[in-house]
Amino acid sequence: MKFIIFLLLGSGLPFVCLAQSDLSNLFDSTASHQPVLNTYKGTRIIMGHSTETLGKHELDFRVDHRFGDLGGEFGGVKTFFGTDNSTDIRIGLEYGITDKLMVGLGRSKGSGVQSQLVDGLVKYKLLTQTTDNHVPLSLAVLGTMNVSCMTASEDKNSPVYFQDGTDRLNYVLQTVIARKLGDKLTLSLSPTYVHRNKVAYMDMNNMFALGAAGRLKVSKRVGFIVEYFYPFRSQESKDYFSANGIKFYNPLGVGIEIETGGHVFHINFTNATAIQESQFIPETHASWLQGQFRWGFNISRRFTLGGKKTWKK
């Protein structure tokens, strides 16, 4: 436990250390305390959230999709490299209440023990990195909750045998710490806490994970992104599931981020089958090395609400 706390606290240290160096010449603006823009292009990196929030009165319609295994037993030509299957799909609406506070509501298929998930999220951007290094990093706090709407199992030993509604709830609390190093490179860390109200025997209700991500901008509109999560699953739990033929893998995603006007496309490859943090962090069973990775995309279309009023003024 102490180790985890130290790790979470320590996760911000590299950024603080970087802040000591004078990087102001890397940024275009010379005005003091100017915010660094576009740390990431969207509110998501690949699987997890970025430090970005929607602007005030901005509505974001999102469609996230993960296909089936590209290779391995269930991939290859017979499923047209996974495109015949979809492991998870999320459709959501997100809204910026202020420039720093956003909320969202979504419905996803779910790809874990629980399925048919309705989720809600709140994200608040606490810190915004400034060009003069007055604030050396950006920091956002995210809270999500989802509820499974699936039919409950009749088997009392099943993790989806729901005795009451609270058995269906899952929570995630995440801090995203990012620093843009120059115009092209962004690095971030995401200490994450996942709580699931009901889990399978020997699974963990509470789990810490540490995410790490990076983005390398290769042109004005295109960037390469990579994201990885390390879930801190207990050895006892790993051993139990391993003895029953179930292995857990750490989610890893790589992708391309393309911005075209109001759209942000993410084309990515991940071993994670699920979209929700409460599922892909503790329940990724697919391995890159066994060809069990998939391509997916996140499409985001933003609309500005109340624009007419602003125009009239």
Binding site: M145, N157, N197, A200, Y201, N205
Partner: peptide, 14 residues
Amino acid sequence: YAMACKNEQAPAPQ
């Protein structure tokens, strides 16, 4: 948010 939190584990499979 916190009130609905609980820690429940399914019983050991038979």
